[in-house]
Design a protein around this nucleic acid. Structure first.
Lengths: 154, 154
DNA sequence: TATTGTTATACTCTATAACTATA
DNA sequence: TATAGTTATAGAGTATAACAATA
């Protein structure tokens, strides 16, 4: 942006209309956070999405693949590949629901529960790192607003 | 999740640990918002990222491709394709910086400015739609927090 | 006939490495 | 030698359509 050396390219960006654009800010904030979270989770063989699947498999909700798709806003066909990966690593099992043999309930194995215990700490640390510039009160406010976006029915 | 017919699969999800996980909430909120924003922008031939490039090309900041990459948290090689698309649609021009012939300043054409004027309204409407469940005060708070995440130096 | 899980396909996004032209 | 833009490639994420087994 044709500035003296040493001046950040973003210096004047904060003054533009884009800085008021929640869409832009969301994309940028999300990109940075995802990078951090995935980098940390990669160390234990997970990513943001496989972590979420594992979390639900550990939750005791007896979620079917269809439920996982709905909960994570994914297409059912994407869930197949994610569960395949976790299953081949021995972290979850597909259990046939005796009440409807079409459905597969995804349950975490003992190894899955053990890894999730570690993964929660990793994810929580990554979150703290990604949001280090926020106060505890601001993080709480962000959580409340996100919760409202996700769980408020349309 | 083995519930009576008519009960939403997400009913009990709000009580699990995942509902406290900002990472999960962010992924889910972001997925929904992006879907809405891209669907609306598609109608005028843009997407979230080409919209952001066009916004900066219209901003008067005389941004180079390197600046765009930094501002949008993209790799410079991704900016090439995005600028290619906008340029072939006649919305932006690559102008060689006389002070450093390696650099290309991305400027919006008159057609680019005209489309951006429409695109801002579309993006703003999509944002309102995606965040309809928030009050004006909550949207303002969300904006402040996102701004802090994006512009707070590490 | 409708639904669950599955396979297949295509397109977008993200991440890296290497090349060219300029500095 | 270092940087801006470019090309190429591979992997992850997103979106559809169709199929087999089951309801």
């Amino acid at each position: 942006m044709i500035e003296p050396r040493g001046t950040g390219a973003l210096t004047r960006l904060a003054d533009t209309a884009l800085a008021r654009d929640i869409g832009y800010l969301t994309v940028k904030a999300f990109a940075g956070s995802t990078r951090i979270v995935n980098a940390r989770l990669d160390e234990i063989g997970l990513r943001a999405r496989s972590y979420s699947i594992l979390a639900l498999a550990c939750s005791g909700l007896d979620a079917t693949q269809r439920d996982l798709a709905a909960a994570l806003e994914l297409d059912p066909s994407q869930v197949v590949a994610l569960v395949d990966g976790l299953e081949s690593s021995g972290l979850v099992r597909r259990e046939q629901d005796p009440r409807d043999r079409r459905q597969r309930i995804i349950q975490a194995t003992p190894a899955g529960h053990a890894l999730f215990k570690r993964a929660r700490k990793v994810a929580s640390g990554a979150e703290a790192e990604a949001l280090a510039m926020l106060s505890a009160a601001e993080r709480e406010t962000l959580w409340e607003i996100l919760r409202k976006i996700v769980f408020a029915g349309p």
